[in-house]
């Protein structure tokens, strides 16, 4: 790892300033992806700004939405009775990220800011139609994810919380890479009175995406059978030593059906 200056500011304003004043500064949330990247010397920040002391952790439920602080860990989400009651798909999803030790450190905000194309959370936030709150604005999920490792965040912009509408039903299913345990295909389905939203992670070359054909069919008939006949083209899907694009295209359907079945 290259050396850097480490800061742990106590206020959001200080953190934003540190990150904005220095183009080579990077924010550190849980570090479960970022620190391995630093260890491999793939990134050379001059300054690392630890967001741990900004008070950004916590889960609140109010009315029709759940708000999750950006620094809330996967473990906290996975063990939250409130999340389990309101958005069971999210609770289950958090329990499948990494391993228990990783879940104790990794955060939802960190994962979203990184937008790894095989990460789990982007599918939940996109499928739920959530809103990413930052130090300066609110970004709808449909605008936030802009391709692999790319988001709408500006230099120095810090996610403070994630607001998620509570669906009638939700579920997440993950087909894991046998080696890394990241998603080869992960499907999050959320059923709202207004219709069904379904997002897929792991499969797409451009990162997480909504499957509008599935959504349309499921909005009409929320059952696995409704999408059984819908083929997903392999074009635009990832291909690597673990899964070809054709296999991923097939899995998209299988995993989506299982997610719908699980949502019940």
């Amino acid at each position: 790892m290259y050396d850097f200056t480490y800061d742990k500011p106590g206020s959001l304003a200080d953190a934003v300033k540190l990150l904005s004043d220095d183009m080579d500064a990077k924010a550190l949330a849980g570090g479960q992806t970022f620190i391995p990247v630093l260890k491999q010397r793939l990134n050379r920040p001059s300054r690392v700004v630890d967001l741990a002391k900004l008070g950004l952790s916590g889960i609140t439920v109010s009315g029709d939405k759940v708000t999750i602080g950006a620094m809330t860990t996967h473990a906290t989400i996975a063990s939250s009775a409130e999340i389990k009651a309101k958005i069971p798909g999210l609770q289950h999803q958090a329990s499948l990220i990494g391993d228990e030790a990783v879940r104790h450190r990794g955060t939802m905000g960190g994962s979203l800011a990184n937008n790894d194309p095989a990460a789990c959370y982007p599918s939940a936030v996109l499928a739920l139609g959530g809103t990413i709150k930052t130090d300066r604005r609110s970004i709808p999920a449909d605008e936030f994810f802009q391709g692999m490792f790319t988001t709408a965040l500006e230099q120095g912009e810090i996610i403070t919380s994630i607001e998620l509408p509570i669906p009638e039903k939700s579920a997440y299913e993950k087909f894991r890479n046998p080696a890394s345990r990241y998603a080869i295909v992960g499907v999050f389905v959320a059923k709202f009175p207004s219709g069904v939203r379904l997002a897929i992670t792991g499969a797409g070359q451009g990162g997480v995406f909504r499957h509008t054909e599935f959504e349309k069919a499921l909005s009409a008939n929320f059952s696995p059978d409704a999408i059984a006949g819908i083929k997903t083209p392999a074009d635009g899907l990832n291909s690597d030593i673990h899964a070809s694009a054709e296999y991923r295209a097939h899995l998209v359907n299988v995993v989506a059906r299982r997610a719908v079945a699980k949502a019940g």
């Binding site: 570090g31 473990a75 030790a101 990783v102 104790h104 450190r105």
Partner: peptide, 9 residues
């Protein structure tokens, strides 16, 4: 809590 000490500063 269990933590990977190689992935924490």
């Amino acid at each position: 809590e269990s933590v990977k000490s190689c992935t924490m500063l």
